[in-house]
Amino acid sequence: MLARLIVCGALLCLSGAASADHHGPTCGHLRSAFYEYGALYYKTADGHWTGIDKDVVDEVARRLGCTIEALTDSRVRIWAGLSGGSIDMSVSAVATPEREKMGRLVPYLAERNYVLLQASAPDNMHSMDDFLANPALKIGVIKSFRHGKAYDAWLAQLRARGRVYEAPDYEALLRLFKVGRVHAVMAISTGWYPLFKREPLRIMDWAPPKDAVIGGLILSRQHIDEALAERFSQTIRAMREDGTLKRIFERHLNPELAAKLLNF
């Protein structure tokens, strides 16, 4: 069952009243799906959900005068929900032609994918080709994730050789890594940064310099019309211009990584 909470909890928002930033009609009650992943969406020590994705949606809801109900689930089930019409929107989504048929993407962060290597992996791992050339090595990814053109082509070669494990979510991926079922995992900086603070990691950047992954809100075409989608887009642009996005990123990452997320 999907875990539920109200993202925009202020009484004004719950009543549908507009915030000071709000222009035009409110956007009513929407359902946004979140998935647990590193600094994007995680539980605090007292059990509350927080993270970059939640803070972005909270602020968009405040500015637009929406009530946004948050549903927490796996990425695979989220895509099924968007396709089937049971979810109105989701977060940190990467566009593909198939996904853009079901939703409009509103970018708010730019990421890079990295390969995290086990300490026990051979020392001569300096590139995707080095990893591919060693048939004993396996890698873990999250099912349905996209990693950019270079990594996706590389992973396709590894899949053809039976060397890719697909986990349903980030926690399951980390378990594969920690118990040694895989020698490497794919992770973006918002994924590995919380781990890096706790333990040393071999973080390999093997993608071309411009192979960025752009993440954003994905708004269901079934439930959110073009006019409302444009208001979401205008709100995200305003949050970037007034420094709100930067402050949100720095709340959960160090300043260097936070600055890179703005390059979308």
Rank of each mutant, 00 (worst) to 15 (best):
Ser90Ala: 15
Ser90Asp: 15
Thr96Ile: 09
Glu100Met: 09
Leu105Phe: 11
Leu105Ser: 02
Leu105Glu: 01
Val106Thr: 03
Pro107His: 06
Pro107Lys: 05
Leu109Ile: 12
Leu109Val: 11
Ala110Met: 09
Glu111Arg: 08
Asn113Gln: 14
Leu116Asn: 01
Leu116His: 02
Leu116Phe: 06
Leu117Val: 05
Leu117Asn: 01
Gln118Glu: 13
Ala119Gly: 07
Pro122Asp: 06
Pro122Ala: 07
Met125Ile: 15
Ser127His: 12
Asp129Met: 13
Phe131Pro: 00
Ala133His: 12
Pro135Thr: 10
Leu137His: 06
Ile139Gly: 02
Gly140Tyr: 01
Val141His: 01
Val141Gln: 03
Ser144Asp: 09
His147Glu: 03
Gly148Pro: 04
Gly148Asp: 06
Gly148His: 06
Lys149Ser: 11
Lys149Glu: 13
Tyr151Thr: 05
Ala153Cys: 00
Leu155Ala: 02
Leu155Val: 03
Leu158Tyr: 01
Ala160Trp: 05
Ala160Asn: 08
Ala160Arg: 07
Arg161Glu: 08
Val164Phe: 08
Tyr165Leu: 13
Tyr165Pro: 00
Tyr165Arg: 08
Glu166Cys: 04
Ala167Lys: 00
Pro168Arg: 09
Asp169Gln: 03
Leu174Ser: 04
Arg175Lys: 14
Arg175Gln: 14
Lys178Pro: 00
Lys178Ala: 15
Val179Glu: 13
Val182Thr: 05
Val182Ile: 10
Val182Gly: 01
Met186Leu: 15
Met186Ile: 11
Met186Arg: 06
Ile188Ser: 10
Tyr193Ser: 13
Pro194Val: 08
Pro194Glu: 09
